[in-house]
């Protein structure tokens, strides 16, 4: 059952990396979102795929009655989704503010911190 997931996840990663290699920050941002989803799916698949039975213990039982989906990766992913959203929002605001101040979303044109013609550091004593 894992194989189709593997293919999909490979696609997710390839697309995310391709987008993040762009010099336009909006594309990079989209890449980050895709990467987050890809990683979540990766974790999910790592915990093995089991169809249709959520890890919820039915009434009257002390342990799951049947074989259920693996709860551990789910718990990890749940928080990861929220965190990656926060991260995404933060990056979005950075891009937004950078655009407002610098008038571009091209990373190569943002050279405030690393100017192109940086002078040589002083060589005296």
């Amino acid at each position: 059952m894992e194989f189709p997931f593997v293919l999909l996840i490979g696609l997710f990663f390839a697309a995310a990396v391709y987008l993040m290699l762009s010099k336009f920050l909006v594309r990079v941002l989209l890449g980050v979102v895709l990467l987050g989803n890809g990683v979540n799916l990766l974790l999910f698949t790592n915990g093995r795929i089991l169809r249709d039975v959520p890890p919820i213990i039915p009434d009257g039982h002390d342990v799951p009655a049947t074989l259920t989906a693996n709860p551990l990766p789910q718990a990890l992913i749940l928080t990861a989704i929220v965190i990656s959203f926060s991260f995404f929002a933060f990056l979005l605001v950075l891009v937004y503010r950078a655009y407002q101040d610098l008038g571009t979303d091209n990373g190569n044109e943002m050279r405030l911190a690393e100017p192109e013609d940086d002078p040589l550091p002083p060589t005296g004593y």
């Binding site: 894992e2 194989f3 593997v6 990396v17 698949t45």
Partner: peptide, 18 residues
């Protein structure tokens, strides 16, 4: 090329793990 290599790498890794 880099993107495809990364995607392939992760897919192979995941396949090996599963």
């Amino acid at each position: 090329a880099i993107a495809v290599a990364c995607g392939l790498g992760f897919a192979l890794y995941l396949l090996k793990v599963t």
